[in-house]
Design a protein around this nucleic acid. Structure first.
Length: 477
RNA sequence: GUCCCCAUCGUCUAGAGGCCUAGGACUCUUGGUUUUCAUCCAAGCAACAGGGGUUCGACUCCCCUUGGGGACACCA
């Protein structure tokens, strides 16, 4: 039997990390079993659903690389089918019309709560003598009155809920539109879903859905309820509470691979292993290894993974994502073979000292355009009057270089050190500030080589005149 | 209120009755490497919620308590 899983978000906002992880688990399981992954958009709530949200979900999925084999299927396209099934249930006496107004139901619940009872529909329309079709009504499913429903959850094991806890849920609203618990059942059935992998906030819906499935004489899929994700503060992650959209992570400079790796380890594990490529995830994944406990999102660990992937993924692959940030930050570094070679050379150098692509992009800006001003602290400390001699001597040495490369540059630096009898700190740091404008950077030899001779000399001049000016100011005082 | 689910370092987790003096990872601290900043390497801090059972033996099984989460919609 082919495994068919699905991800069924409702388009009421962006794709957040919790949803993304559920989608990932479903996707992985389908891939692992060489099954099928279906994307279904649950948009029966027309008031809250939006086109923009549909697009945001699609964008998030595609950025993560979670491709679907079928879909997206929209529930709003399937109203005819829902109506047909509702009619069938009505015909078979498994559902009935109910004429209570919303106000009456609210009052009923209110009273039950006041008495300390379970707030639920009392089933008083179950046995009416007549069911006029023209009078405003909803349609309710006749839930079994006794016995209990058993879920053999792949993650939680045996769960049993008594039918006396359940009431006759509404499957069609007054306007005739079907409701969630009903559409899910019809869809999962029609789409041949074999494994329902979803958040554990749906555990309570499962028995209702199973009862409807039974009424339809349908096979019961396997269920796997994955725990929720909590925020940094241990509170449940929700759209209102720190649940950042997946695309926000792209904007913040994370690689999809890093987010995927982070997400898969949230609630799932394979021994002590921390690093998983997508192929390895597929290979090692199993539903049984998913934890029962909710887990908290920890940005620090995500950062670590992100840096790990910036360092270890092929530079050409990182470059694809980095370029997006360069454009975003208005850094003119693309559309040029020479520049992309420089970028790829810069990636391993800077990946070691940044945690996100966003930071990386901003730190290599100096390579593609002149910086406006020196970092104040760095300039104060290293572009001192005494550094003038070192830089001007180095400049002469640089000018005479025929071959402009890492080795020759380092050689020139070494020679200058010997000549002036100074240490690396006295020349390396001034040079660093002169070239990059800041006090931290990778090795100066490689940086100068990548920057080019002409630009290097120009920056040296700039630093020299900065020092000159400083000297003048000092004399004036 | 009722029902359901959950419970190992701050966080993510390993642990399927003896392998546990509870392991790994992130974070943090300290040291080493390093021309800066990082990286890297080494070391350290740090947990089985509490109470009862079961058993020769419980982190592992059962019960209770406590704590957290979720659901009880004409939302999904």
């Amino acid at each position: 039997m082919t495994v068919i899983t699905r991800f069924a978000p409702s388009p009421t906002g962006y794709l957040h990390v919790g949803g993304a992880r559920t989608a990932l688990f479903s996707w992985l399981y389908a891939k692992k079993t060489k099954g099928e992954f279906v994307l279904r958009i649950e948009d029966t709530d027309r008031e809250r659903s939006s086109e923009a949200s549909v697009q945001a979900i699609l964008d998030g999925m595609s950025w993560l690389g979670l491709d679907h084999d079928r879909g997206p299927i929209f529930q709003t396209d399937r109203f005819d089918r829902y109506e047909q099934v509702i009619q069938q249930l009505l015909d078979e006496g498994k559902a009935y019309r109910c004429y209570h107004s919303q106000q009456e139901l609210d009052d009923m619940r209110e009273q039950q709560k006041a008495k300390g009872d379970n707030p639920r529909y009392d089933g008083s329309c179950r046995n009416l003598s007549a069911y006029p079709e023209d009078k405003p009504h909803v349609i309710r499913f006749k839930n079994p009155l006794d016995a209990s429903v058993v879920i053999d959850d792949l993650i939680r094991g045996h769960i049993e809920i008594s039918n006396t806890e359940l009431d006759d849920l509404i499957i069609a609203r007054t306007d005739g539109t079907p409701t969630y618990n009903f559409t899910v059942v019809v869809d999962d059935l029609d789409m041949g879903i074999t494994h329902v992998i979803r958040g554990d906030d749906h555990i309570n819906n499962t028995p209702k859905q199973i009862n409807i499935l039974h009424a339809l004489n349908a096979p019961i899929p396997k269920y796997a309820h994955v725990p929720m994700i909590l925020g940094d503060d241990g509170k449940r992650l929700s759209k209102r509470h720190g649940a950042v959209g997946v695309m926000q992570y792209r904007d913040d400079g994370y690689l999809p691979q890093a987010l995927l790796n982070y997400l898969v380890r949230l609630g799932w594990s394979n021994g002590d292993r921390e690093i998983f490529s997508v192929d390895e995830m597929i290979d090692l994944f199993s539903l049984e290894a998913i934890n029962k406990t909710p887990s908290a999102f920890n940005t620090k660990k995500l950062n670590w993974l992100n840096q790990h992937y910036m360092k270890t993924l092929p530079a050409s692959e990182v470059a694809v994502h980095l370029n997006w940030h360069l454009v975003e930050q208005g850094i003119n570094a693309t559309n040029n073979a020479k520049k992309s070679a420089v970028i790829e050379a810069l990636i391993p150098l800077y990946a070691e000292r940044t945690e996100t692509l966003k930071q990386l992009a901003s730190q290599i800006r100096f390579m593609f355009e002149d910086f406006k001003e020196f970092d104040v602290k760095a300039a104060k400390k290293h572009l001192k009057i005494t550094a003038g001699e070192a830089l001007s001597t180095l400049k002469v040495s640089f000018e005479s270089l025929v071959d402009w490369n890492e080795a020759s540059i380092q050689n020139a630096i070494d020679e200058t050190m010997t000549k002036l009898d100074i240490g690396m700190g006295k020349i390396g740091m001034p040079l660093r500030v002169a070239i990059t404008g800041s006090g931290q950077s990778p090795g100066m030899d490689i940086l100068c080589a990548l920057l080019g001779k002409e630009a290097t000399l120009a920056r040296l001049d700039k630093a020299l005149s900065f020092i000159e000016q400083r000297k003048l100011q000092a004399e004036q005082r």
